[in-house]
Design a protein around this nucleic acid. Structure first.
Length: 641
RNA sequence: GCUCGCGUAGCUCAGGGGUAGAGCGCUUCCUUGGUAAGGAAGAGGUCAUGGGUUCAAAUCCCAUCGCGAGCUCCA
């Protein structure tokens, strides 16, 4: 018989402890050890993150969270948001409060104030936050009734609005620290003293509930960490990201530009175009080897196509329309996607099961009329080229085809040294097609993933309305994730375009369509690569692969000969015989991230050699035979090393 | 699209009601230099565009265009 005043808590390692009913996670931590108690920030009780002071009323599984746990960091950041709001209320006493969650790398809080916060104000708020932290105000949690909450937040219309949305079965809790009271689900760290290492980063307008019809609030973003060194590291990472910004590098390395007369449409310089072409050709070559057909389709279509595809109704706002001269109506639209035109090509003739899987690949220019505020650099543009392909196949071929695609994606990312993560998204609430079809589609994708042995994250309900999908997020050198590749099953388009093929049984069958992209768009992909490599592209992608530097005019002709020789073998070599010191020209070559500099002085000219300096490795120069150098560099290019 | 901020030489930026500055880059000349900046001279700007206020506007105000940050990772 168990003592009714005792409860059993189960620790993560499976061990059990008996404690008095009503003990807190902090009591448990103290029992385990004083070190843990000191480090404890919050606790996870039966999967729910709670404060250390929350009494335990029944047998539970418990985990003490310390600064090493992500959930603890969330609690810290959410607490930092409260500290921010506490400080803001001192600077702007009447400020209404919206939401203030923890987000990746930090937190924000939305305030309803008459005027935006100024940078000077931000500094004052940050100083006030420091005071609030020093005061070590405990975060007190209290369960209240709806009526009590209404009273407490009678001056906060935004909180009241949120309050009324809470279901009757939900426990309504408030948190208080010092003078600040918030309707909040928690959890929080024990007191404001934990919020030591933070920094306010920026302000921005944000619509209440993200709804542009509602009022605009003033949002303050900040970051918070458990240690000063974590904070410092994060700030350095931000600086590094700024330094690598592809827009900055694009200018500095002279790769692309923009002009106000075509916003969101990049102009590629000679150097940028070389990178672009290199990627396009690589993609085409590899796809060709893998049984893809390359096709090109029109850019402009009668609206009949868009009505058939559904874009006219659902996507028209994002399309560039063209007036028909005779009718004066918008009869044509520029393509924002390639799929409808591929479907037309598939449907254009009788297809046999023997042709399947039929893989159509296109890298045509697409246009999407993004709202002006959505544009930015190469990552959000109006004109771009996708590495787009659509595969038409019989349902039983799906698993095998998906496996091939994953292999292909792995090859492309692997060659570039990009790590990636996989997400598998299943049927959403709003969808078309029967459950039986979804069952088969999801099973096929899962089977493909399973047979490759790929780790993936399941995202239930995140699929497209027309089918499940697999997304690929690459992680760049700074640890940032970018969604690039996607594999999407589509059961809807074959219906609306009435796609058929003749099966072995001589009867008509409906194919399945797979939409897939690997780089996404070349524009965005180059932007990501630029930031990933910090502009220092691998040799095969570098716009300028070798810069040949004669030391004096005496060697200029000899150096020009080497340039010519390399170019004859398709190595992108340039001569720098400017009337500048060697040091100056070396510096310029390094700044421009040229992978190799080949120096020719009197000694090299005499011996027919070249002094090779590799980018970023000044100490590893090597004097070598010119033929050897050429061979080495050609091999490196060929291997895409 | 909306809110806020920004727009001065090719680039990075300073200045600021009395008709423009620096560094880098560019051009020319000198220099012929052995691995991250040799020297000198020079060219280059309707201060984004259009209105307004003023004796006077790059500077203040308004509009337009462009750029940037942000616009539910739900109390």
């Amino acid at each position: 018989m168990s003592d009714s005043n005792k409860i059993t808590v189960t620790l993560p390692d499976g061990s059990r402890k008996e404690v008095a009913r009503g003990s807190t996670p902090m009591d448990v931590a103290e029992q385990i050890g004083p070190g843990l108690a000191r480090a404890a920030v919050a606790a996870k009780v039966d999967g729910e993150v709670v404060e250390l002071g929350r009494p335990l009323e029944r047998d539970t599984r418990i985990e003490i969270l310390t600064p090493r746990d992500d959930e603890a960091l969330d609690a810290l950041r959410h607490s930092a948001a409260h500290v921010l709001a506490t400080a803001v209320r001192q600077v702007r006493p009447g400020a209404g409060i919206g939401f203030g969650p923890a987000i990746e790398d930090g937190f924000y809080y939305d305030f309803d104030v008459d005027s935006p916060f100024t940078p000077e104000e931000l500094e004052r708020i940050e100083a006030k936050m420091q005071e609030v932290a020093s005061a070590k105000q405990p975060f007190e949690r209290k369960v209240v009734t709806r009526e009590e909450a209404r009273q407490l937040f009678s001056d906060d219309p935004l909180k009241l609005e949120r309050l009324e949305e809470l279901g009757d079965d939900e426990v309504i809790t408030i948190y208080r620290n010092g003078p600040f009271l918030d309707l909040c689900r928690g959890p929080h760290v024990p007191d404001t003293g934990q919020v030591q290492h933070f920094k306010l980063l920026s302000t921005a307008g944000a619509y209440w509930r993200g709804d542009e019809r509602r009022q605009m609030l003033q949002r303050i973003y900040g970051t918070a960490w458990f240690s000063g060194s974590d904070l410092e590291e994060y700030l350095v990472r931000r600086e590094e990201a700024k330094r690598r910004d592809h827009r900055k590098l694009g200018r500095e390395l002279d790769l692309f530009m923009f002009h106000p007369w075509s916003p969101g449409a990049p102009y590629w310089t000679d150097k940028g175009t070389r990178i672009y072409h290199e990627l396009v050709e690589w993609m085409r070559d590899v796809l060709g080897e893998h049984g893809y057909q390359h096709v090109k389709t029109p850019l402009l279509y009668n609206k009949a196509l868009w009505e058939l595809s559904g874009h006219w109704g659902k996507y028209q706002e994002n399309m560039f329309l063209v007036l028909d001269k005779e009718s004066g109506e918008h009869e044509y639209g520029m393509k924002p996607m390639n799929c409808p035109s591929h479907h037309l090509m598939f449907a254009a003739k009788h297809r046999s099961y023997r042709e399947l899987p039929l893989r159509l690949a296109t890298q045509d220019v697409l246009h999407r009329d993004e709202v002006s505020g959505a544009l930015g650099g190469l990552t959000r543009v109006r004109q771009f080229q996708q590495d787009d392909a659509h595969i038409y196949l019989a349902e039983h071929q799906v698993a095998d085809e998906v496996r091939r695609m994953v292999d292909l994606i792995d090859y492309f990312y692997g060659t570039l040294g990009l790590d990636y993560k996989v997400r598998f998204a299943t049927r959403p609430e709003e969808r078309i097609g029967s459950d039986a079809t979804w069952d088969r589609a999801e099973a096929a994708l899962q089977a493909a993933l399973g047979s490759i042995g790929l780790e993936y994250k399941l995202e239930e309900g995140d699929g497209a309305f027309y089918g499940p999908k697999i997304d690929f997020d690459v992680t760049d050198a700074l640890g940032r994730d970018w969604q690039l590749g996607t594999i999407q099953l589509d059961y809807a388009a074959p219906e609306s375009f009435d796609l058929r093929f003749t099966g072995e049984d001589n009867a008509d069958h409906r194919p399945v369509v797979i939409h897939r992209a690997i780089f996404g768009s070349f524009e965005r992909f180059i932007g990501i690569l630029l930031e990933h490599f910090a502009g220092a592209f691998p040799v095969w992608l570098a716009p300028e692969q070798v810069r040949v530097l004669p030391i004096t005019d005496e060697q200029a002709e000899d150096a020009a000969g080497l340039v010519k020789q390399l170019r004859e073998h398709s190595v992108r070599a340039h001569l720098d015989d400017r009337s500048e010191t060697l040091g100056y020209r070396i510096r310029d070559g390094e700044t421009q991230k040229t992978p190799y500099m080949a120096v020719i002085g009197a000694r090299e000219a005499e011996a027919g050699t070249v002094a090779v300096r590799k980018r970023g490795a000044a100490d590893k120069q090597e004097v070598m035979d010119r033929a050897l150098f050429q061979e080495m560099i050609m091999q490196e290019i060929g291997e895409k090393a």
